[in-house]
């Protein structure tokens, strides 16, 4: 039981510390930049933003 308590308490301190460090590193090394660009990754020159690609039902089939 004390082993478990020790591991649990230790992880309560350690895990957030690691998470915070990772977050700081991520922010400072620019991992959060370019994120708007990443949202455009499903699109390309052939199927750019603004183009519907699955218009097959209901009258005006294209």
């Amino acid at each position: 039981m004390p082993v478990i308590a020790f591991i649990l308490l230790g992880s309560v301190v350690l895990l957030p510390a690691v998470a915070l460090m990772a977050l700081r590193w991520a922010a400072s090394s620019g991992q959060f930049r370019c994120s708007d660009k990443a949202a455009l990754l499903p699109f390309d020159e052939v199927e750019p933003v603004g183009l519907e690609t699955d218009r097959i039902l209901g009258g005006n089939r294209r």
């Binding site: 455009l40 499903p42 699109f43 750019p48 603004g50 183009l51 519907e52 690609t53 699955d54």
Partner: peptide, 8 residues
């Protein structure tokens, strides 16, 4: 996004 042509 792909079907409606709008980013997330």
């Amino acid at each position: 996004p792909k079907v409606i042509g709008r980013p997330i």
